[in-house]
């Protein structure tokens, strides 16, 4: 039930922009809670990588005096990976195309993670 509702938030998020290719909700220790991923993408991999990156982001932001972590953004040749907290114990990870309009995606992801954190 909860998973279905989370999946519907994610589907909606993927629908808000053609640039968003995948999204997932993951526990901070790296286990998938809900996801809308393209075929062939390994859930476990996405989960564990997101947890590791976000935890390092948390530490880096804190230790270097940047305060609470808001997001981790990774840019590659073939697009973006964006990770944000959804409450204390979950991560929202979004993958987007290389020419994606980031400002809009930031906004949509922020909204979605607020909704998600209320459900967890």
């Amino acid at each position: 039930m909860r998973e279905d509702m989370l999946a519907s938030i994610l589907s909606e998020l993927n629908g808000t922009s053609a640039d968003i290719e995948a999204s997932a909700v993951i526990s901070t220790d790296g286990l998938m809670i809900a996801s809308v991923l393209p075929q062939g993408m390994d859930e476990d991999r996405v989960g564990a990588m997101s947890a590791a990156m976000l935890s390092l982001g948390d530490r880096t932001s804190g230790e270097l005096g940047r305060g609470e972590l808001e997001q981790v953004l990774i840019k590659g040749d073939n697009g973006f990976v964006l990770m944000t907290h959804a409450g204390e114990d979950a991560v929202v990870t979004v993958m987007a195309k290389p020419r994606a309009k980031l400002g809009l995606i930031f906004l949509d992801v922020k909204r979605a993670s607020e909704n998600i954190s209320q459900m967890l």
Partner: peptide, 12 residues
């Protein structure tokens, strides 16, 4: 030490 401990939700 630097730790990256998070709440466990698996069998751990």
């Amino acid at each position: 030490p630097v730790n990256t401990d998070k709440a466990a939700s698996d069998m751990t």
